Deep mutational scan, measured.
Amino acid sequence: MQIFVKTLTGKTITLEVEPSDTIENVKAKIQDKEGIPPDQQRSIFAGKQLEDGRTLSDYNIQKESTLHLVLR
């Protein structure tokens, strides 16, 4: 499925993911596309910070959902 990741600069990245993917996985995909190390990424969805060990389905993130990426 496709999800979108919006950065603070307003750029939107499209990722191909599975509901079973962990947040860690997703951060690795963002690193592949953007070169941002996962330890600098904070992902926010529906106002909640997403934890690395959880999966997209844990957070009820579905296709075409938009995550927000904040850098630390």
Rank of each mutant, 00 (worst) to 15 (best):
M1P: 01
M1R: 01
M1Q: 00
M1W: 07
M1V: 03
M1N: 01
Q2N: 09
Q2A: 07
Q2R: 14
Q2F: 14
Q2T: 15
Q2S: 09
Q2C: 11
Q2Y: 13
I3V: 05
I3M: 00
I3Y: 00
I3G: 02
F4C: 04
V5H: 00
K6D: 03
K6N: 05
K6W: 07
K6L: 11
K6C: 14
T7A: 04
T7N: 04
T7S: 06
T7P: 02
L8V: 12
T9A: 11
T9Q: 11
T9F: 12
G10P: 00
G10D: 03
G10R: 03
G10T: 02
G10K: 03
G10Y: 02
K11Q: 09
K11R: 11
K11D: 07
K11C: 09
K11M: 08
T12F: 11
T12S: 05
T12I: 15
T12A: 03
T12L: 13
I13G: 00
I13S: 00
I13D: 01
I13W: 08
I13N: 00
T14S: 10
T14C: 06
T14P: 06
L15S: 03
L15P: 00
L15W: 00
L15H: 03
E16C: 12
E16V: 12
E16K: 08
V17P: 00
E18L: 14
E18G: 07
E18A: 12
S20H: 11
S20T: 13
S20P: 04
S20A: 08
D21T: 08
D21G: 03
D21Q: 06
D21Y: 06
T22G: 01
T22A: 03
T22F: 05
T22S: 07
T22D: 02
T22V: 03
T22M: 05
I23P: 01
I23Y: 04
I23A: 01
I23C: 02
E24Q: 12
E24S: 12
N25W: 10
N25K: 14
N25V: 14
V26A: 01
V26S: 00
V26F: 04
V26N: 01
V26R: 02
K27M: 15
K27N: 06
K29L: 10
K29N: 02
K29M: 13
I30N: 00
I30A: 06
Q31A: 14
Q31F: 15
D32K: 11
D32T: 09
D32L: 13
D32A: 13
D32R: 11
D32I: 13
K33H: 10
K33G: 06
K33L: 14
K33A: 12
K33Q: 12
E34W: 15
E34Q: 08
E34C: 14
G35Y: 04
G35F: 06
G35W: 05
G35M: 05
G35H: 07
G35K: 06
G35C: 06
I36K: 06
I36Y: 13
I36E: 09
I36N: 05
I36P: 07
P37I: 10
P37A: 12
P37H: 12
P38A: 15
P38F: 15
P38M: 15
D39P: 06
D39K: 07
D39Y: 12
D39M: 09
Q40R: 10
Q40Y: 09
Q41Y: 15
Q41E: 07
Q41D: 07
Q41G: 05
R42E: 14
R42M: 15
R42V: 15
R42F: 15
R42L: 15
R42H: 15
S43W: 15
S43M: 15
S43I: 15
S43H: 15
I44A: 04
I44T: 08
I44V: 11
I44F: 15
F45Y: 13
F45T: 04
F45E: 02
F45H: 07
F45M: 05
A46Q: 13
A46W: 13
A46S: 09
A46K: 13
A46Y: 15
A46C: 12
A46V: 06
G47M: 05
K48T: 12
K48V: 14
K48L: 12
Q49L: 15
Q49S: 11
L50E: 02
L50D: 03
L50V: 04
L50M: 06
L50R: 00
L50N: 01
L50G: 02
L50C: 03
E51T: 05
E51R: 08
E51C: 09
E51L: 11
E51K: 07
D52Y: 05
D52F: 02
D52N: 09
D52L: 05
D52C: 07
G53T: 09
G53R: 07
G53Y: 12
G53F: 11
R54I: 07
R54P: 04
R54E: 03
T55P: 10
T55W: 02
T55Y: 04
T55F: 05
T55M: 10
L56F: 03
L56G: 01
L56T: 00
L56W: 00
L56S: 01
L56Q: 02
S57M: 11
S57Q: 12
S57K: 13
D58Q: 07
D58I: 04
D58Y: 15
D58E: 10
Y59E: 02
Y59R: 02
Y59D: 01
N60Q: 08
N60H: 09
N60K: 09
N60G: 14
I61S: 02
I61F: 02
I61Q: 00
I61G: 01
Q62C: 04
Q62M: 10
Q62K: 11
Q62G: 12
Q62L: 10
Q62I: 11
K63D: 13
K63Y: 06
K63S: 14
K63T: 11
K63V: 07
K63W: 06
K63C: 05
K63F: 06
K63P: 15
E64D: 14
E64N: 15
E64W: 14
E64K: 06
S65T: 07
S65K: 02
S65R: 00
S65H: 06
S65Q: 11
T66E: 07
T66L: 10
H68N: 06
H68S: 06
H68D: 06
L69A: 02
L69Q: 05
V70A: 08
V70L: 11
V70S: 06
V70C: 07
V70R: 07
L71F: 08
R72T: 12
R72F: 12
